[in-house]
Design a protein around this nucleic acid. Sequence first.
DNA 1: AATGAATGAGTATTCATTCAT
DNA 2: TATGAATGAATACTCATTCAT
Lengths: 200, 200, 200, 200
Amino acid sequence: MTPSQLAATTPTKTRNRRFDPERRDRLIDTALNVIAAKGVAGATHREIAREADVPLGSMTYHFANMDELLYLAFSRFVETCAARFDVRMQQSQTPEQAQEAVVQGIVKDYLGTSEEMILAYELYAVAARKPLLREIMQQWMEASQHSLQRHFTADDARIIDAFIEGLIVHGSLAVEPMTEGEVRAAVHRLTDPLLLQRKQ
Amino acid sequence: MTPSQLAATTPTKTRNRRFDPERRDRLIDTALNVIAAKGVAGATHREIAREADVPLGSMTYHFANMDELLYLAFSRFVETCAARFDVRMQQSQTPEQAQEAVVQGIVKDYLGTSEEMILAYELYAVAARKPLLREIMQQWMEASQHSLQRHFTADDARIIDAFIEGLIVHGSLAVEPMTEGEVRAAVHRLTDPLLLQRKQ
Amino acid sequence: MTPSQLAATTPTKTRNRRFDPERRDRLIDTALNVIAAKGVAGATHREIAREADVPLGSMTYHFANMDELLYLAFSRFVETCAARFDVRMQQSQTPEQAQEAVVQGIVKDYLGTSEEMILAYELYAVAARKPLLREIMQQWMEASQHSLQRHFTADDARIIDAFIEGLIVHGSLAVEPMTEGEVRAAVHRLTDPLLLQRKQ
Amino acid sequence: MTPSQLAATTPTKTRNRRFDPERRDRLIDTALNVIAAKGVAGATHREIAREADVPLGSMTYHFANMDELLYLAFSRFVETCAARFDVRMQQSQTPEQAQEAVVQGIVKDYLGTSEEMILAYELYAVAARKPLLREIMQQWMEASQHSLQRHFTADDARIIDAFIEGLIVHGSLAVEPMTEGEVRAAVHRLTDPLLLQRKQ
DNA sequence: AATGAATGAGTATTCATTCAT
DNA sequence: TATGAATGAATACTCATTCAT
């Protein structure tokens, strides 16, 4: 067998890329992608390194251990989601716009892309077991309710937030996903009476 | 002292336990316990076998592979939950009793024991990735809505079911878990208007 | 989950077939098929039992161990091959017919079906390591040379037999398999001079 | 006695042998030895690692999977055999020397050492089933015929090569191995007529 | 600062064989 | 007599992490 033939069997080395200042950052994004694709269980150092085209040793150089990386990845995910929802709330002026923003938040941000939902479920599961990640989950809820409090009372915000949660879960795992119309009807049923007595 | 006598003196090694007709069934229960304790990722053949005090080879004798075991375990979990909820609904006579049964279902069956919640989250996460387990999730939803339809229209049942889902998730992962009073208030806010126009 | 759904996951039991007098015989044939399909290494009790639709316990009931089964299977294979070749030689009257019978034996019996060749290679490999199976190999050679001695001297028979062997191996593993014409030319080149001085 | 002194007294555990730059290469050789000793089926990661005094994890670090290792091992084997035969052919000047080189190649290189034959049989068997290894087999044949074409026409080379193959198989598996004299007689019977009309 | 090599613990799964029924 | 249940040893392979360079 000639050396060139041998090379076909062994993975080709495409590297020697020493300078890569944003690698750490890029690895966190890659980690999220891998979690979405294969779950937390499938998000191994090896898999993430391969996906990011980075040497394996680089993983533990940048992150003390997997838990740290998970923490960073899910933090970023939650921040992104929370910020996006806050923009929707912030841009709403009237109560009716706020209602519709909730509907759009559910339909556009979650029901559309299964990737977001998968990440959320992975976070639920892991948060139930690891306190560090549970904190992230709680920050998300607080941020979410904070956004809702731009238009609703604290108590109502909590209820609405829970409702959003439920609609998303149901909407994504049900045999036939909820339509935008169904989501809108559900949101209205809960929030219409609230609007009458809303925060002034 | 004959060898057999000697064996009697030696600390019982729990072996030679050849006949064990309900082992398969017991293993499914053990699997659920292990999933609750360590997650799907931690529910390995070894761990379940150790917990059930059964030789490792016994696992793959009884279950073709891990997915089959997961399927059986989560099926049992879902059946138990669905049956319990159906009893609550069935025992309710008036709409007001049905409302309260929903509240009790949330508070007693889920918020009380974190184990049930953890199992649910694990199921969400794994259902989002494996079609076989997604089916279970969907059967659960259908069963749940079927129970609710004893007292509510199909459309309302779907909304209420989603709301229950959200209250449970929020209730269990929030910094301070929801109290029974808060849950009751939330349920009433959604279902009170429904009762007026309810199924006759 | 209903029982019927569960059955889909667990292998269906198609049995309770107690009376099966030729089972042992059938198992030997099945073993040969499995060896041809998956090699000696892939011919496990489980695989053969599955292929023959027979309970696993039946394997060790009929055969003391795998070596015995291998012995019986390869014996049958060799007997079949040897008998077939002997018929070819026996039916040849003239030296020219014997020559052509050799050609046909190579082309029709081996080069055509890769299954026979695979079984032969598996036998070579295993015979080189296990004395019991080496005996079978030697019986085959003797039978083969005995058949050839109907038309050639003992010394020539041995040479011709080796040549047949080589043509078969080359013919079956080469990039482009030998054609019937090439085989005929090769056989003639070796045996034509022999015919002149042949056994009278 | 300090712990470190204690360690010095304990029998060397051959560990902490971190740096071993030619390990991969050595493992390929060890693999060949194990295949020769126990067959492809017996050439397990564990066995090869033990034989090479290397930790088990080292095997899958160096080779993506067993097939890759088999490929590399048999490639090396075939290269060695082919090179050795080519030297014999290259060193022959006259046709008569070439004839004798063929004889010596058979007798010295194969009939003498059963290890080489066993490796060849294992390769046949595995080549019949795995396309990747079949390629190796074909490269071997091509190399072999290329060497023969230093002295014979392409057509004759193919026939002679097949004949060599058969003589080796027969010679090694027969009840009483062929003698050098018998091999020489056989080779002469086939090649003498060829020499008269040989390549000029 | 960065990484290729290395490793021990662990993974699901397969297996020949035993044995109580 | 025949077999389903059982099991300990073994298999290929993956992994997070360590560490010498």
